[in-house]
Structure formats: structure tokens, C-alpha cells
Simulated scan of single mutants.
Amino acid sequence: MSRIDIRHAHALPKPQARKAVEEVARKLQERFQVECGWDGDMLNFSRSGIDGHIALEEGGLHVFAKLGFLAAMFKDPIEAEIKRVLQERF
């Protein structure tokens, strides 16, 4: 099983950071057809072969995902898209 583990710093107030995370989630939904939902300050996302979360922390984000066998073949493009969108939004 492959993993994605990204930490990304930000200086946004919590409400703006949460809104930006929601924009990231929309991009993930469009590109990878994941289901998303908030649990406190953590946005969980999943679909067959992908299970992860984006934790909204003070001064940063933590993106973590476990990729199943087939999704692991696409780890690099998935990780690159997440990083690109984080740079764009934060």
C-alpha cells in the first residue's frame, strides 16, 4: 500500500483556510471522483482504492492518504495535483 503524506504551511485565518480546503476538496472530487466530508477540522475523502484526510491545523495543513494497489500506480499525478492546488489556494 502506497501513502501520500504532505505538510503545507499557511498563514490564513481558520475560516479562510477552511474555505480554501473546501476548494481543494472540489478539485479532488472533479479530478479523482472522491467523496468528501468534514469531521471537525478534518476533511475526510475516499473512494475505492483511496482513503485519506486533510487536517486543518494552526498554521498548516496535513494531507494524508492511503492508496490501494491500482491507485498507487497514479500516486505521482495524484500527489502533484494536490501540491499544485495547495500552492494555488494557500
Rank of each mutant, 00 (worst) to 15 (best):
S2G: 13
I4D: 10
I4K: 09
I6D: 07
I6Y: 07
I6T: 06
R7A: 13
R7F: 09
A9W: 04
A9L: 05
A9M: 05
A11V: 02
A11G: 05
L12Q: 09
L12M: 12
Q16L: 12
A17K: 01
A17E: 02
K19S: 10
K19E: 13
K19R: 11
A20I: 02
V21L: 03
E22P: 00
E23H: 03
V24M: 07
R26N: 08
R26S: 07
K27R: 14
L28D: 08
L28N: 07
L28Q: 07
Q29D: 06
Q29S: 05
R31Y: 08
R31H: 10
R31E: 14
F32M: 04
F32D: 00
E35I: 13
G37F: 07
G37R: 12
G37D: 11
W38K: 11
D41E: 14
D41A: 10
L43C: 09
N44T: 06
N44S: 08
S46F: 13
S46T: 14
S46A: 14
R47N: 01
G49A: 07
I50D: 00
I50W: 01
I50E: 00
I50H: 00
D51V: 14
G52I: 11
H53D: 13
A55W: 00
A55P: 00
L56M: 10
L56T: 11
L56W: 02
L56F: 04
E57C: 13
E57H: 14
E57N: 15
E58C: 03
E58A: 13
G59I: 03
G59Q: 03
H62Q: 15
H62A: 15
A65T: 09
A65P: 06
L67T: 03
L67E: 03
G68P: 02
L70Y: 04
L70K: 08
A71V: 08
A72W: 00
M73R: 12
M73K: 10
D76P: 01
D76E: 13
I78C: 03
I78L: 14
E81Y: 11
R84G: 00
R84K: 08
V85S: 01
V85Y: 03
L86G: 01
L86K: 02
Q87E: 14
Q87V: 04
Q87M: 06
R89S: 01
